[in-house]
């Protein structure tokens, strides 16, 4: 003890730390990793914002020119109206969420409140596999199975339904189902068990407990799930593009072909020259898409804050 005290004791406290300790390498590495992540995000945002305004800056089009429903990038009179794409994106994702949200919330309720353990053990991995299926596969399935099915089997209803808004929304709704389900499920599981037993002990039915305790308590989480589903759907390009028909006009009917921001960008980006107006308008559309998802992210943050206060 005494030896240690003489060797490294009080005097040891004043020895300068080794070079390695002064550099503090691990801390720097993780800091660098975090910093580069943030930097990449900001550089990307800056680049897309910069490219997104080139149509107005470089090519001299007035900002108002994109607020039009006419899309004619090659044939005179040239018009870069992007409203059909914005409306298409909103329309196709909106209907997809309308289809998917009730199913997802129902599935989450089943998993969280009703399912016996074995059923949960089956459904949860199934959902994870669901997430893992690449979007091109969904699109292909939509193209080869769903669209022909709709076309041949729904004729009796008095309209033809092939490549269409409805087909796009249906494919999207399946793709976002696991997203909404898992996040809603987590929100339900986060509701303290005490509240459930407290409610049941007052002589309420399981459904009353779900309706009056569980759903309100998980409200913020459920809305977050829906908004995340919306953003996932709005950002999805490939699968939608394969079944939606890609007609650059304002969406008029669920049975008609339409287009979205993402599908138009992927269709046109190979056929245009960097810097040309018809290329720059695609960047503008990308910027609009980015703005939509940023609004969604802000919305989620706000929801979670207000949800946590309660």
């Amino acid at each position: 003890m005494a030896v240690v005290g003489e060797a490294a004791g009080l005097a040891g406290l004043h020895v300068r730390p080794a070079l390695r300790d002064r550099l503090d390498l691990p801390r720097r590495v993780v800091f660098l990793a975090a910093a580069s992540m943030v930097a990449i995000v900001f550089v990307l945002l800056g680049f897309i914002a910069w490219q997104g305004v080139q149509l107005f800056v470089q090519n001299g089009y007035p900002i108002g020119s994109v607020i039009s429903t006419t899309w004619s990038p090659q044939d005179a009179p040239i018009s870069f109206g992007v409203l059909p794409f914005v409306a298409g994106t909103i329309g196709v994702t909106g209907v997809a969420v309308l289809i998917s949200a009730p199913l997802s919330i129902g599935l989450a309720l089943f998993l969280s409140e009703v399912a016996p353990r074995w059923a949960r053990a089956v459904v949860q991995p199934a959902l994870e596999i669901f997430v893992g299926i690449p979007s091109v596969v969904w699109g292909w399935l939509g193209l080869t199975i769903l669209v022909p099915f709709l076309r041949t089997n729904l004729n009796g209803l008095g309209f033809t339904l092939g490549f269409s808004w409805f087909a796009g929304s249906l494919v999207l709704s399946i793709m976002i189902l696991p997203t909404i389900t898992t996040i809603t499920y987590d929100a339900f599981r986060a509701v303290p068990q005490d509240l459930r037993t407290g409610s049941l002990a007052l002589g309420t039915t399981r459904w009353q407990t779900i309706r009056h305790i569980l759903l309100p308590a998980a409200r913020a989480g459920t809305l977050t799930a829906i908004v995340l589903g919306l953003t996932r759907a709005a950002g999805e390009a490939l699968a939608v593009q394969m079944v939606i028909g890609n007609r650059p006009t304002m969406p008029t009917s669920l049975t008609q072909p339409m287009t979205t921001l993402t599908s138009q960008i992927t269709l046109d980006m190979g056929n245009t020259v960097f810097g040309a107006p018809d290329n720059n308008v695609l960047w503008t559309m990308g910027l609009i898409l980015l703005a939509i998802s940023m609004i969604a992210v802000l919305l989620i943050r706000k929801l979670n804050r207000s949800g946590g206060r309660r």
């Binding site: 303290p192 005490d194 509240l195 037993t197 407290g198 409610s199 049941l200 002990a201 007052l202 002589g203 305790i213 309100p216 308590a217 309660r310």
Partner: peptide, 16 residues
């Protein structure tokens, strides 16, 4: 039955 036989728990569990 649970309406006629109420229960108070160990940890207070008021609803939010």
């Amino acid at each position: 039955l649970r309406r006629r036989v109420g229960m108070v728990f160990q940890r207070p569990n008021p609803f939010p």
